[in-house]
Each structure stands twice: as structure tokens, then as C-alpha cells.
Design a protein around this nucleic acid. Structure first.
Length: 347
DNA sequence: AAGCCGGGGGC
DNA sequence: GCCCCAGGCTT
């Protein structure tokens, strides 16, 4: 087993010197930029995160730039990336480090792990890439490579399964090459040992890979749970009066702190008659329906059915907690993807 | 331990 | 349609 481990590690490190996977944060030692990149990349493909990383480095070149920014500015630049609590935690942690640590990024694994929005993976990534500390990363790539190569059949999405993979990864880590090895195994998972259609024919680990020999590549790694999808029905009332629009900061379980139009959620999408009833309830009597538009969006565990009612008002509405803005100002606000799609196609 | 948090891309 | 992605937080 020790011999197999050594072959595994040395083969990966050797393989990594033969490939090119260019990423703007690769090889950087500045912990601020590494942290930024790792938060952006949580549950996010490298190709999706790349533009956001470049934008954030440009807009917030130091941690104090980020700390001094407004949360709405950060969210606007995070718009479209998803998991918006990452942006809030990023801001809070930037403020914390600026104030409590004089702007100096923590240098130990435990301190890094204690930062908001930083879990075991991200702490290991920062500790190894910035300081070459011997902590093994365990992300989706690592889980897949280890499960297949060593034939680990425990489900990874349970607490004991996570522990198994973490212990295995830590045991394999060469303490004198933490950064290089962590980078190598993730690159390998992304380029060779891919989730679908892995490149087993040309894989440098092929002749010692458990899954390849047993023909179990397509069933490893094991997952225990399936996510179930819940349907939700959102009726957006897009009120307009004298060329002004009304948006509100959302305070709900998801898309929190993004903006939205007047929203009523229901069991199924409203008909125009039901809209008229709702307008009466909020004391709007002189209104004309200009158009309605349906859109859907799939989230990880939800399907959103949205119907946009564009409603022209004869009188100025009296809303609490809404901002009155002109059409050209809409682009200053961070919206969920489905609202941006609506705006782009109908305004 | 289980459930929740977005959006995009591959097949 | 379903799965996965440089995961973490809350309950």
C-alpha cells in the first residue's frame, strides 16, 4: 500500500509538469488573492469563476479596498455567480482582517479556518498555496480521483465519508510539496479523471487504478443522497409610473440582499383576474396591464416559475421599502438571473 | 446528520 | 433530464 501511495503521488507530480492549465491565480503567493479565488471557485467551475476573479482583483486590489466597499457594490459584481452568501462573508471577513489584524492575512491553518466562509477545503488551499503548509485539499476533484484510484466505496456526502476522504488525502500529502501536490491532484481531476468520459486510455495511473481495472470508473465515487427539486411560483408585479420603476431588496431564504420587483408567491401562477384582485388589496385602482411574460429558472433544489406582470399605474404608488428608480438605473442593482433575463428581453 | 444556498455546462 | 462544479453554513 505504501508503494502504491508513492507511485500515485510521484506520478501526479510528474504529470503536472507535463500539462498547461493556465489560471490567473496559479502560482500566486499573496494570501488575499488566493483567498479571493478560492471563495469564487467554491462549487463553481474554473471557467465560470475566471472573469469574476479578474474583475475583483481589478476593482479591489487589496483587502482594504474590499473592506471599504459597500455590500451592494460587491453583490453587483458578484451578480450571476450564485451562492450570494459568499459575497457577504467575503466582505465581512475583509472588514474583520482589516480591523482586527491590521490588514494582515492570518498565517496559520486554524486562524484561516476560523474565517467566515472558509471551511476545511478553503483553509487547506490557502495554507498550502500561500505558505506551503502541509494540509491536503479535499474538493470534488480529489474525492473522485481517490475514490477511483484506491477504490474507496464509502459515500462522500456523509460526515463519516468526508472524514474517510480527508484522512486518505492527508496521508498521501507529501509534506515537503504541499502546494505542488494539491495543485496537481486537482488539475488531474479536472483534466484527466473527469466526472464524465474520463481519459482512462491515456491515463498515467491507468495500470494501477482500482476503478479502471474493475471497470467501475463510471460508478465511483458513490453518493448517498439525491437532491429533490421543489417547485415555486413567483408573480412579479413590474410597476411603472411616469417612467419610474420600483425595486426592493429581497429578504428571504435565497437570493437574499439581491433586488426584485414587487413579488407575490402563490400555489400556482396568477391569472390576470387574480392580479386585479391583488391590486385591489393594496389599494391600486387605476392600472393597466401592458404585458405578461413567463420565465423559468432551475436552481439546485428548486424550480422557479416566474410570471412578470408589467403594470402601468395612473397614480404614484406608496410602497414602503421600495426604491423608485428610472429605467437606466436598473443596471446599478444586483438581480437574480431570472429577473435580469426578463429585463434584458422586455425593456 | 441533513438540508439549504445559484448558476452554468456536459452529456 | 440528471449530474457535477477548486464547499460552507444552519438547524
Amino acid at each position: 500500500m505504501i508503494a502504491k501511495n508513492k507511485v500515485f503521488v510521484s506520478t501526479l507530480i510528474e504529470w503536472s509538469s507535463t500539462i498547461i492549465r493556465d489560471m490567473p491565480w496559479k502560482g500566486i503567493r499573496n494570501p488575499y488573492y488566493i483567498w479571493l479565488s478560492e471563495i469564487i471557485l467554491q462549487q463553481t467551475r474554473v471557467e465560470q469563476g475566471r472573469k469574476y476573479y479578474e474583475k475583483f482583483v481589478e476593482l479591489f486590489p487589496t483587502i482594504s479596498h474590499l473592506a471599504n466597499a459597500k455590500i451592494d457594490t460587491i453583490l453587483k459584481n458578484w451578480e450571476g455567480l450564485g451562492y450570494y452568501s459568499r459575497a457577504r462573508n467575503l466582505h465581512e471577513t475583509a472588514m474583520y482582517i482589516t480591523k482586527e489584524h491590521q490588514g494582515v492575512f492570518p498565517k496559520t491553518y486554524v486562524e484561516i479556518l476560523n474565517l467566515k466562509g472558509v471551511g476545511k477545503y478553503t483553509a487547506a488551499a490557502i495554507a498550502s498555496f500561500a505558505y506551503d503548509l502541509p494540509y491536503a485539499v479535499v474538493d470534488g476533484n480529489v474525492i473522485r480521483v481517490l475514490a477511483r484510484y484506491f477504490g474507496i466505496k464509502e459515500a462522500f456526502d456523509t460526515s463519516s465519508g468526508k472524514k474517510t476522504f480527508e484522512e486518505s488525502a492527508q496521508k498521501l500529502l507529501p509534506n515537503d510539496a504541499a502546494s505542488k501536490y494539491n495543485q496537481a491532484i486537482m488539475d488531474f481531476g479536472a483534466l484527466v479523471c473527469k466526472p464524465a468520459l474520463p481519459m482512462c486510455d491515456t491515463c498515467p495511473l491507468g495500470n494501477s487504478c482500482y476503478a479502471y481495472k474493475k471497470d467501475e470508473v463510471n460508478i465511483l465515487p458513490y453518493r448517498a443522497k439525491k437532491t429533490k427539486v421543489e417547485e415555486r411560483f413567483f408573480n412579479y408585479f413590474v410597476f411603472t409610473y411616469k417612467n419610474k420603476f420600483y425595486v426592493q431588496k429581497r429578504n428571504a431564504e435565497f437570493w437574499r440582499d439581491l433586488y426584485q420587483f414587487y413579488l407575490i408567491e402563490s400555489e400556482k401562477l396568477f391569472s390576470e383576474k387574480e392580479v386585479a384582485k391583488e391590486l385591489k388589496k393594496i389599494n391600486i385602482h387605476d392600472a393597466s396591464m401592458i404585458h405578461t411574460k413567463d420565465l423559468t429558472q432551475k436552481l439546485s433544489h428548486r424550480k422557479i416559475y416566474a410570471r412578470f406582470f408589467y403594470i402601468e399605474l395612473a397614480n404614484k404608488p406608496l410602497f414602503d421599502d421600495f426604491e423608485e428608480i428610472s429605467k437606466s438605473k436598473l443596471t446599478n442593482f444586483a438581480f437574480p438571473r431570472i429577473i435580469n433575463l426578463y429585463i434584458q428581453n422586455n425593456f
